[in-house]
Design a protein around this nucleic acid. Structure first.
Lengths: 135, 135
DNA sequence: CGTTGATAGGTGTATATTACACATAGCTGC
DNA sequence: GCAGCTATGTGTAATATACACCTATCAACG
């Protein structure tokens, strides 16, 4: 007993590669310039982020609009298909700011993990089980 | 026309505060030490991250186990209710590493947003609409 | 004119994830 | 016994996502 079944290769990694990161990143882009969905989807790809489904991008933008974080209007000034131009609202800006804070906290936690956070030198070979002596 | 309906206060912010961040953070904690669910949920809270539902934490851990990123065994060495002790598998370690890279990219994007990425000085008052002259 | 291809914005749906409420069980103190 | 903390779960409704698919505009080509 007390045997951990190590190393069985992960079946298929059924993880969503995204989460609120899509929402946050879209708002971030819109903080600098107004843009339309097709363009945002491209910027996402160019930024080296994992590929997003364009349908998801469009749907997410509409949802952001429903909740008041962005606003949009049809732009027919250019030739070609009409574009729905989005811009960040004040509420969206506030939301983004708070989310950037949260993201920073996650980053801090992960950063500590990478560096090996224990001041008493983390002994790699003998992983401590739990934080033994504490409280 | 072409009027954007600004400032309508967001209805209720129906956003999940988490995403794969929970998965990633759990794996990150397990990289340093083995732990059980209750403990991990506490560490999450102590790290200043937005509160997680404990049920979600437990469910996520089981799911991580199903996919082979962590392994577990019942620990009855201490008094009190039995604990399911988790540890990171090799697959989990690899997965975590790649995810930290991805997270870094998101951070980079958001960071640029904060700093005001345009070298030509972003004029706050006159937000450029789209990346006008380009291509 | 017809068709192809790029641009642009969607929808339907099956599956996955999550928050919320609630359930179970061990153990301690009274 | 029983209240309360520890510890781990489940049921379910709401939400989110990937994948496949659809519509429409416009430019170029023959």
């Amino acid at each position: 007993m007390a045997k951990s079944n190590e190393q069985e290769p992960a079946q298929d990694t059924p993880f969503r590669m995204h989460g609120d990161l899509l929402t946050t990143t879209l708002l971030a882009f819109l903080r600098n310039w107004n843009a339309y969905g097709y363009q945002l989807a491209q910027q996402l790809a160019e930024a080296g982020l994992p590929a997003f489904d364009s349908g998801t991008v469009y749907r997410t933008l509409r949802q952001l609009e429903r909740t008041g974080l962005v606003s949009s209007f049809w732009d027919t000034s250019e030739s070609g298909p009409a574009r729905r131009m989005y811009s960040l609202t004040k509420a969206g800006d506030l939301f983004l700011s708070s989310w950037i804070d949260v993201l920073g906290k996650y980053q801090a936690v992960l950063q500590k993990t990478i560096e090996g956070m224990n001041p008493d030198r983390g002994d790699e070979t003998a992983k401590r089980s739990a934080k033994s002596a504490q409280s």
